[in-house]
Design a protein around this nucleic acid. Structure first.
Length: 179
DNA sequence: TAGGCCATCTGGTCCT
DNA sequence: AGGACCAGATGGCCTA
């Protein structure tokens, strides 16, 4: 796509100690030809300004998403403790972890709890009794993740608990409905 | 060097 | 109209 203005170099501290990331600078373009109508020029400027604002929002949105992912990582047990799971590993591991905890409760004879989490509210999610559980429409068994755990194959049993370093990837991509 | 992971940009679509 | 969300493209960093 075209770049109307030189893209600023964005330096960012990447989580996980990957160091400073340096984005490429946009290609510099020669000035617009003299014959271009002023209205077209301002329209272009407005468009560009809107794009930049959208970029900022998108960046912020992704940062929020990553923050939530980090929070999720924090409550997942890993060995060594500071081992950082990738995004997909975090999601798959969390899925298995929840399943394991649920199984533990079930085997312990505890009644099913964990009501569904209300979605769409501002800020932190709130628990609302009575709502359908997240797994109502897609039970763990419906998800082909890992065998001994939620709908997986037996070979994946070794993936629990997570081995040193990273949590091994599930054999099958996690279906959207399982997230 | 290839492949994996990631951040960012971008245009499209949907929603308020 | 503007914001949120999404997926594709691109390019940088890291590791085997």
């Amino acid at each position: 796509t075209q770049e109307e203005e030189p893209r600023p170099v964005v330096e960012e501290e990447v989580a996980g100690g990957r160091g400073v990331r340096r984005r490429s600078e946009g290609k510099r373009r020669p000035g617009r030809s003299r014959g271009t109508p002023r209205t077209a020029e301002t329209a272009q400027r407005l468009k560009r300004s809107r794009r930049l604002k959208a970029n900022n929002r998108e960046r912020n949105r992704m940062h929020n998403l990553n923050a939530a992912l980090d929070a999720l990582r924090d409550v997942l047990p890993t060995f060594p403790e500071d081992a950082k799971l990738t995004k997909i590993e975090t999601l798959r591991f969390a899925h298995n972890y929840i399943w394991a905890l649920t199984e533990t409760l079930r085997l312990a004879g505890a009644p099913p709890v964990l009501p569904g989490v209300a979605v769409g509210g501002a800020g932190s999610p709130s628990w609302s009794a009575g709502t359908a559980s997240p797994t109502t429409s897609a039970s763990p068994q419906a998800c082909t993740l890992s065998p001994a755990s939620p709908g997986g194959s037996a070979s994946d049993a070794e993936h629990w608990p997570p081995p040193p370093g990273r949590f091994p990837p599930a054999t099958v991509p996690l279906p959207r409905r399982c997230l």
